[in-house]
Design a protein around this nucleic acid. Structure first.
Lengths: 243, 243
DNA sequence: CGCAAGTTTTTTGTCGACATAAATACAAAT
DNA sequence: ATTTGTATTTATGTCGACAAAAAACTTGCG
C-alpha cells in the first residue's frame, strides 16, 4: 500500500536505492512514490493530485512538490506547468530509447569493470550466478526472482566500474524504469536460461580482464533483452486489439 | 550577473536548454542558477544559502528549493539533508567519470544517428563544420567560439539519434557540466584543428551510413578530448602547487 | 440537440511564518 | 592555551493560507 509506514521494503532495495540516512520528508516521498509507480500501484499516465498525495503521505504540499521534481528528473513522472504531474507512460518508443541508453551505459560499465573490479568481486559475481542458477532449477517458471537477481547482477557490474555517475544513472534512474517495465511483463515467461548463459560469458570475460569483449557481450545481452521485451509488447498490443 | 532580468542569453542556449514556454518560478530559478554555476559566477563548492538566493532571484524559498532539487538531479549541486546545498566540485575523478559516460552516450547517439538522420541533416552538419572552420581560420586563438560550436555539433548528433532520453541526458544534464568544465579550461589553447578533423571524419561516416564506424570515431574523439582536458588539469594542479 | 460563453470549482503556484536541527560563539575548567 | 560544554544564532525543513490558472459545470443561444 502507498500509505505503509515503513520506508524501505527490504535490504535489497536499501542497497540499490540510495536512501539518505537522515531522510527529509521530500526524500521519503520520493522513495514511496517511486515504489508505488514502479509496482504499478499508481497506474501509468495517472494524474497525480498534489493535495491528495500529500494527504496520503501525511505531509504538506511543499515536500511533495520537491519529490515530484526529483521524480521528474528520474523520468518517472512528467510535469506540465500549471497542469500537474502524471505517471510516465512506458510506450514502445520510450522503452526502446531506454534500452539503447542502457546498452551504452552498461556496456561502458562492463568495459571499465573488467579493469577495476578485484578478483574477489568477480568471484562473488560468479557465486551470485550460482545461486541464481539453483533458484531457476528449483523454482522453474518463477521469473520474478530471476528479474531481481538479474538487476542485482547488472548493478554489481555498475558498482565495479567505480564510476559514480554510471552508478547513479544505472542505479537510481534507469534502474527504476527497468523495474517498472519488469512489473508489466514479468508474468510472461522470460528467457532466463539464455540470459544466465550470457551472464556467465560476461563474468568469464571479466575474469580474463578483457574489457572490450565484456562490453560486447553486455551489449548483446541487453539487445537480446530488448528483443524479448519488444516481442512481449507486440503480443500485448495484439491482445488488446482483439479484446 | 545573477540578478539579470533576462532568462536566456542568446538563441543558441534557447535551443539547447529546454525552456518551458510557460515557465514557473522554479524553472526560471533552475535556468538562472544553472547559468551562474556553469559560468563560475557561483564558485565550485560554494555554499548556497536559500534565503539569500531567494532574495537575489526575487522569489520565495519554495520555488527555490524545487530548483535546487532539479539542479541536484543535473549534478550541478550536491545536497546534504539539514546541511544545505553546495555547488558541485569538478575534481579530476568527477570529470573522468563524466567523460566516460559521455563517451558511451555520444557513441551510441552517433551510431543511431547514422541510420536515423536525413541526408539534409547530415549536409547541414557538414555546413556547420564549414562555418566552424572559417571561424577558426579567422579568429585563430579564440577557442571559446570553437567550444560552443563543438557543443553544437555534438548536440545536433544527439538530436539525430531521435532518442529523447539520449537528448535529455546529453542536452540538459551532461551538457551543463561540460560547459562548466569548458569555462574553467577555455583560456588554454584547445586542440581545435584535430577536433575539427575528427568531426569531419564523423560526418563522413554518417554520410556513408556506417554506424559502427561513426560510433568508433566519436568515442575516440571524446577520449582525445578527455586526454587534452586531463593534461590541462595536471598543469593547473602543478601551477597551484607552486603558487 | 449541439455548441459556446460565462460561472463555479478545483488545482497548481507562491508566499510568509513557525519548528527544528546545525553551526557558531562564548565561557569555564583542566 | 586547548578543549569541552553550553547558550545563541543561523539556516533548513515544514506547514498553512492566499492568488492565479486550469478544469468542470451550468446556462443560454443557434
Amino acid at each position: 500500500m502507498l500509505g505503509c509506514t515503513h520506508i524501505v521494503d527490504n535490504k535489497k532495495e536499501a542497497m540499490l536505492i540510495s536512501v539518505p540516512p537522515q531522510s527529509t520528508l521530500a526524500d521519503i516521498a520520493t522513495q514511496r512514490l517511486a515504489h508505488s509507480i514502479v509496482t504499478g500501484e499508481l497506474a501509468q499516465g495517472q494524474k497525480l493530485n498534489e493535495a491528495e498525495l500529500a494527504e496520503r503521505l501525511g505531509m504538506g504540499r511543499g515536500p511533495l512538490r520537491e519529490a515530484l521534481r526529483h521524480l521528474e528528473g528520474m523520468h518517472l513522472v512528467t510535469r506540465i506547468p500549471n497542469a500537474g504531474a502524471r505517471v510516465v507512460v512506458l510506450d514502445r518508443k520510450t522503452l526502446s530509447d531506454l534500452y539503447a541508453v542502457r546498452e551504452a551505459l552498461e556496456g561502458m560499465a562492463c568495459r571499465i569493470a573488467a579493469t577495476q573490479m578485484t578478483d574477489a568481486e568477480i568471484e562473488q559475481l560468479g557465486k551470485l550466478l550460482d545461486r541464481h542458477e539453483r533458484q531457476i532449477a528449483k523454482e522453474g517458471g518463477k521469473v520474478y526472482a530471476q528479474s531481481e537477481g538479474d538487476l542485482d547482477f547488472h548493478y554489481q557490474i555498475a558498482r565495479g566500474s567505480r564510476n559514480q555517475m554510471l552508478m547513479d544513472q544505472l542505479g537510481n534512474e534507469q534502474y527504476q524504469l527497468l523495474r517498472m517495465c519488469r512489473y508489466r511483463t514479468s508474468r510472461k515467461a522470460a528467457r532466463t536460461k539464455p540470459a544466465l548463459q550470457q551472464h556467465r560469458q560476461i563474468v568469464a570475460a571479466l575474469e580474463q580482464r578483457d574489457g572490450e569483449l565484456a562490453e560486447l557481450l553486455m551489449r548483446r545481452h541487453i539487445q537480446g533483452a530488448w528483443k524479448s521485451i519488444s516481442e512481449m509488447i507486440d503480443q500485448e498490443e495484439v491482445g488488446q486489439a482483439s479484446a
